[in-house]
Design a protein around this nucleic acid. Structure first.
Lengths: 125, 125
DNA sequence: AGTTAATTGCAACTTTATTGCAATAATAAC
DNA sequence: GTTATTATTGCAATAAAGTTGCAATTAACT
């Protein structure tokens, strides 16, 4: 993969994620796009950013992927081991500023984590 | 919903999960069934058991739901706050005997949790 | 300019899970 | 026991999320 500077579409995805207060699904990002863009492109942009460590995602218990800019994540190879909260009622997923200590496991090599709390958020209580 | 004793199919689902060393997807359970059964029925049985607290599930980062008998889960309203480990290579998800302490959050009411570690398991290292 | 490689769009497709409806089976009421 | 009621199951169709192959476009490099 040759290094190339970000295209306009890639920048827009980053911008949208940067301004988001919650994680966003691919579809929501698509809707937030000010210009016409194909959904496959969105998926591919997100995939590349996830691989490069700019973006991480949590899989909600609805099975959908929710993306966020890596603001809290320190390094390129961060475990993304902060907590996410998914509200069952408004279905939003937020990144919370709480980090979970990943235990040392003999038989497993941990590369990423997904810590998801599920329940009711302040808006919906 | 009236109380009724488990049907044969429901018992079989429980039995399969009880004998499993890892969590199982709906499809895997279907394949493990010794008798003919419709996939919709599997989904509905799993849904009921999940609601009643006999079974819990984790959503893998592939978006699929993986089910397990609640062996480690103490009460009916357990948070299922033990760790799961998903191997990226063999795609198996295991319940681990490590419990994560759920932090007290001001603005959120936690009802369930999904703690997933992702990486490489002993078999695949 | 011409070559090479990355990016994007489009349509078709795969996979997982859900829904509506009819058929069946189990419990309760008589 | 027979009937009424309610839960369970099967089947076919559908929904939703994400993926794939291929052609077209765009950007960088020489």
């Amino acid at each position: 993969m040759k290094k190339r500077r970000n295209t306009q579409k890639q920048e827009l995805v980053l911008e949208i994620l940067a301004n988001a207060s919650h994680t966003m699904s691919a579809e929501t990002i698509l809707e937030a796009m000010p210009i016409k863009i194909n959904k496959t492109t969105i998926y591919r942009i997100l995939e590349r950013f996830t691989e490069s460590g700019k973006v991480h995602f949590v899989t909600g218990d609805d099975g959908r992927a929710y993306y966020a800019l890596c603001k809290q994540c320190s390094s390129e190879h961060d475990l993304h081991n902060h907590i996410h909260f998914q509200c069952k009622y408004c279905n939003q997923i937020a990144c919370l500023p709480y980090t979970i200590n990943v235990p040392e496991l003999e038989n497993y090599e941990v590369q990423e984590t997904q810590f998801l709390l599920i329940g009711k958020c302040k808006e919906c209580i």
